[in-house]
Every structure is written in structure tokens, then in C-alpha cells.
Design a binder for these strands. Sequence first.
DNA 1: AATCCATTCAACCGCTGTATT
DNA 2: CAATACAGCGGTTGAATGGAT
Length: 230
Amino acid sequence: MGRSPCCEKAHTNKGAWTKEEDDRLIAHIKAHGEGCWRSLPKAAGLLRCGKSCRLRWINYLRPDLKRGNFTEEEDELIIKLHSLLGNKWSLIAGRLPGRTDNEIKNYWNTHIRRKLLSRGVDPMTHRPVNEKASSNVTISFGAGEAEEEKSGSEGEEMTPRFPDLNLDLCMSLPSYQEQQRRPAAEQMKREGRRTCFGCNLGLPMGIECKCDGLLGLKCGVLDYRGLEMK
DNA sequence: AATCCATTCAACCGCTGTATT
DNA sequence: CAATACAGCGGTTGAATGGAT
């Protein structure tokens, strides 16, 4: 079932955008700014649904987009971020100025996947393809406060893909521990504090952590409830 | 030149998370 | 607290393009 359609499909254009449509969208956003995508098409005189307008603007028309080929540095950064975050394309895009989630996702599927496979690395697990697959991915992320999630292969030592990173991040299905931790997270939020993803320390909102941070980049201070890095 | 096949990437679809009523 | 509306996300699709035959 799901939700009702976001727009009147019978009266909307689909497929590739024309120059005229692009111009209308750009002109409207320049005049009124982003936001309220649902009402934008009508206001801008476009026969498109709001989602389509948003996507066109975010992925193609935004003036701050870099476009062009990805550099070797960007490639490596994407690989590292993907090994940490998985298919969280919007989070990865947040670390690559001028790049969009859609662009990175496409680039991953067309170039980087193949690049990793040619190196003998599984693009999903970031581990050698001939290594035994495991249902859980555990990444080193400092002194872990949470107990280790038991992976299927007990006692099996995992080889760190990026020895320079000191992370201890466990990716698994939502667990009992997560529910236990949530009240603490909410408490932190109420108190206006967040936790640095790099050093795991609590910080007041708006204060930059002085640690070297994730991947040697200026570290993102994360909201406890999610990996919001924008 | 014509056809086939593989690759790329813009755009769509369905779903989730969050805010509002 | 439930229902609803909306924005945003990730997976998938399909038209366009380029290379091989």
C-alpha cells in the first residue's frame, strides 16, 4: 500500500529535463530559495512533481556542484568512508564538497566497485574476497563502551583494513544495548551535548573537537541519534 | 555502415524518519 | 498518541552513449 502519490501523476512530466524547465527551476529558487518542494512546481510553473524538482536541483543544478572526474584522493576517501558507513551515500557526500549522494552512488557502482574487486577486495565488506564472509562488520573505533557484538565466527581475528584508523565501530541490527543507550543519548541532547565521532568524547553543541578526527579530517561532531555530518 | 553489447548516469520509485496537527 | 504531510534517502531502471564486431 504505502503512501499516496506525492503529486498528480497524470499532469506531470517525467523523464529528462528540458533546458526551459531547468531555467524555470533555477529562476524560481534564485528568487525564493529552496524549500517547500511540494508547492514549488506550481509556483515555478513546472509540470513536475516536487520530488523531481528537488532531485534535479540537488543533483544537477545547484551552483556549488563540482562535477567532472573524481580525483584519486576522492576515490580513496570514498572507499574509506564506505568501509565505515556502508551505503550511507548522503553521509559520504557530506564529506566530499561539491559531490552529491547520487553521483557518489553511481560512481561507486560503476568505478570503485570494480577497482576494489581488481585489488581482490570485496566492495561490500572491504575485506579480501577469498576471506570467509561474516554477518557482522566490526571496525576498530577506540575504547568501546558497548560490549562486543558476537559475530558468527568466534575467536576469529579481523584484519583492520585501515591500520591508521583507530575506530571501534560495530555495525549490526538494532540491539538491546542500543535501546539501553538511547536514554543516555536523549539526556545528552537535552543537555545540549554531543559526542565526537573521532575521540568518543562528549562536547557542548557548536564546539569543535580538537582531536585529529575521523580519517584525519576535521572531525565531525555527531548527534548521538544518528550519523549526521552535514 | 549496421548491429550488438556493455557501461554510464539522470531520473524515478518506494520507503523511512521527522515534524505537525 | 495516532494520523498525516513532507523531506530525504537508497535501490533500481532505462535512455543515451561508446566500443567491439
